[in-house]
Design a protein around this nucleic acid. Sequence first.
DNA 1: CTACCGATTGACT
DNA 2: GTCAATCGGTAGA
Length: 203
Amino acid sequence: MQSVVLSREFYLRDPAVVAWELLGKLLLRETSAGLCGGRIVEVEAYLSVRDPACHASRGQTRRNASMFGPPGRAYVYMIHSRWCLNAVTEPEGTPSAVLIRAIEPLVGIELMQQRRGTDIMRDLTRGPARLCQALAVDRTFDGWGLTTGQELWIGEDLSATGSKLRIAKSGRIGLSSAQRRLLRFFVVDNRFVSGRTGRRRTT
DNA sequence: CTACCGATTGACT
DNA sequence: GTCAATCGGTAGA
C-alpha cells in the first residue's frame, strides 16, 4: 500500500473542489493493532458561513472550533452518539470542511471487522459514523493534522490505475436545510457508497 | 440547571 | 420503505 501524504496546500481551496478531488484518495489509520483504511468513495462539502447546513454557519463554539483552524486538520463531531470525520478546508478563519461519508475497505479488513462487530464487508465503512468506528476515530482526533502521515492521514494512491473515476453529485444526505445544493460527490456504481446512488451524473 | 435537537444507524414492516 | 434509540452540544432560564 504505497501512498504519498496530501499536503496542507491540497486543502487550501474551495471545499467543493477538495471534496471532488478527495474521491479515490486513501484514508489510512495506524494503531499498535496495525494499519487499516481504504479508498474514499463518498464525500460532502460544507461551505462556511454562506452555507446554513454548515455547523460553523452560526459562529464558533467549542464543538466546531477546529473548523476555524488551519486547513488539512480533522474536524470530528458527534451526532446521535456517533463520531463523524471531516477534513478542514480553506485558510484559517474560514470554517469550511469536507465530510468523509464512505470508504472502500482495502487494508486491515479483519481489524475493521472486529471494531464494527460484523463480517459483512458492505457494513464496515459505508456511512460517516461506520467508517469512524471501523478506523477507531473519535473526539481525540478533533484537530488532528491529516498531513502528518501518522496515526490518521489521507494520501494519494500510487497503485491506482490511470483510469478516470466516474463521479456523480447530488444533494447532501440527512439535512433539514439547503438540500437543493449539489454538494455530495460519490463514485458511480461503487457498492460502498451510502444512501441513494441516483442523481446527477457529471463525468 | 433543563429542554430540545441532530451532517446516523440498525431494526423492523 | 419506515421509525426511534440515544446522548453530547447548544441555547435559554
